[in-house]
Nucleic acid binder design. Sequence first.
DNA 1: AGACTATTTTAATCTAAGTTCAATCAAGGG
DNA 2: CCCTTGATTGAACTTAGATTAAAATAGTCT
Lengths: 225, 225
Amino acid sequence: MSAPGEQRKRRTTSYSRAGADSSRKHVDSDGTKGQQTRERLLKATAVILTEKGYSGTRLGDIAKRAELQAPAIYYYYDSREALIEEVVRRGQQSAQEHVENALAQLPEGTPLLERIRCAVEEHLRVVLDLSEFTTAAIRNMGQLPEGMRQQIRSDHKNYGALWQRLFEEAQANGEIRADVDVTAARLLIIGALNWSPEWWTPRVCDIDDVVAAALALTSGLVTDQ
Amino acid sequence: MSAPGEQRKRRTTSYSRAGADSSRKHVDSDGTKGQQTRERLLKATAVILTEKGYSGTRLGDIAKRAELQAPAIYYYYDSREALIEEVVRRGQQSAQEHVENALAQLPEGTPLLERIRCAVEEHLRVVLDLSEFTTAAIRNMGQLPEGMRQQIRSDHKNYGALWQRLFEEAQANGEIRADVDVTAARLLIIGALNWSPEWWTPRVCDIDDVVAAALALTSGLVTDQ
DNA sequence: AGACTATTTTAATCTAAGTTCAATCAAGGG
DNA sequence: CCCTTGATTGAACTTAGATTAAAATAGTCT
């Protein structure tokens, strides 16, 4: 008799902690049936989240976009919160991964300024092009309910710290003007990038133009030249 | 016997259209009794709006913060929407006014670059320091319900156009690098400023530091130097 | 085909939040 | 001091949206 409270609600992930390793989250035994639906759901949630914000994200809208009925969501997630949390976590992770990856591929002696440029470009591309999850995460970070913040915030801090390090070293190195507050500068730059989904569409200009402009701004921090 | 449906709900404003004129909105006959409550209400709404986003803004929270009971709000506004709309409108207006004002006070021949710097600084100060309304407006612009967008969007476009003009002229003038897309550059900069309330608190650094950093970034667009 | 599991749906609950109503409180004027 | 209007409140109404329960559909395996 289908004892529902038990075996349903399986959970794609085992995400107790999010490592930076390549192991994608779906540790699910299943291969691909409902798995596809799950992905569709996450994607839909990300879009709605970006458009409507945390509180404005209704299960009904998500369901409609994912082409199923709202209650079906509960087959995959315990609650609206759990679903949203995974989206945000993915977004956070995705950004960090992409940027770290790109940085890791730079040759050994790459000057800090170059690394910063690389991070700027990569972050921007993730936000505008690669991951709707990241956009959703960024835009809602500030409005997440207390419970959800803990884990996510911590990841977020990590990512921020990565940037901060780059900037501080660059300044210590003399590559960045000594007279600017690097914390403020860094947050302003990331802010510019984070805000971009708010206005950018393919019709405004090419992504490469945005990247170029962002790099130009960044060069305002440079000591000499 | 107090026929409530009639004379209540007076309405502070007559805002059919918001001109750029100095006539502040309260065309109300009253001098200052409930007027104070009204202001308290608006301010509370702005704060909640910034914290929780459009959909997360509940009348109960607003009421609590303004130290009255939720239903009392209806004495001043026809609906939650009407209240929020006024907050957003004020925020929009406030930013535009401050910046236009500051620009107007620059001496005649001021070079465009200088004007842009001025606009950057002023916008930043409004957002971080002067107007909680502006912050609320900016952060929620994207999530306002269709009905509200019309009027507000139009004001918003206006403001954007003001900036765009500055940038285009500066580039035509040779003051800004010819190889950057000024639209992208302008939106990135405004984005950096708009995002700042997300991270800035007096404990992070001094506002002047943020201003300085923002100006440094801006100078990345400059042709020569 | 039969039977068991995975997935999705419809109908029913429950609750929070916006809103309305009618009554109360406060203050100023006659 | 009573009365009128301005301001505010507590209780009731209503609806939207999350969640649950139970049933129906689809799949797969033997």
